[in-house]
Nucleic acid binder design. Sequence first.
DNA 1: ATGGTAGCCTTGCTA
Length: 255
Amino acid sequence: MIVASWNVNSIKARLGNVLSWLEEVRPDVVCLQETKCLESDFPGLELKSLGYELACVGQRAYNGVAILSRPKLEDVTTGLPGDPGDEQARWIEATVEGVRIVSLYLPNGNPVGSDKFPYKLAWMDRLIARAKALLALERPVVLAGDYNVCPTDDDVYDPIGFRHDALCQPESRAKFRTLLNLGWTDAYRIFDPEPHKYTFWDYQQGRWPRDEGLRIDHLVCSPHAADRLLRAWIDKSPRGKERASDHTPILCELA
DNA sequence: ATGGTAGCCTTGCTA
């Protein structure tokens, strides 16, 4: 089973790119982030015509996550537990062929010093709590999404320039490590130890043609999922297309 | 020193 994660930066603006990529790669499960539309506005018919079931949660203009699946989608839930007052659409779960799939969009947190950064850290504490509960299921689980965390300086093109950025803060990285230290696996790093492999390149200042990016999209696997990992890779081709998202898909295959 | 891109709607905010 091939599982992909892709921050599309608006599903409506990116529909053509997404449809052509799905036809070409045909992943079994696709987790989308920053869909930026209400459930009622989601272009589901086009995706269903390619054989995908859809589960999504969204809000106007910001955030929004979805799961597409060729096999049946079961037991869909939305929202990250731990803060009933949190209205932001950043979390959706579903089960596909016995694998619990999460599509998550972790808060960016910039600028550090604003209230956005403590919101990010508190959100990560809730993520860690939910990850503990999911581990207790003793089932394969994939936490797929835009984490807005560069785990190490090897995951950012300019570590000095980003030393004050929320994506590279020691607190952000420490919480990501706390997640992994519970027993979760960063699937990409199992298969590719090379530094400076990226999933995001800013639209500005020619970052894409210069390959000046960040690795912030991750496929985080529970032990039962990690035991089934065959490969994980970044597909850079969508980033080079016309009207591209600033992120490109990351994928893994489970036996 | 500045501005540079993209998407959405709040023509400013978020990233």
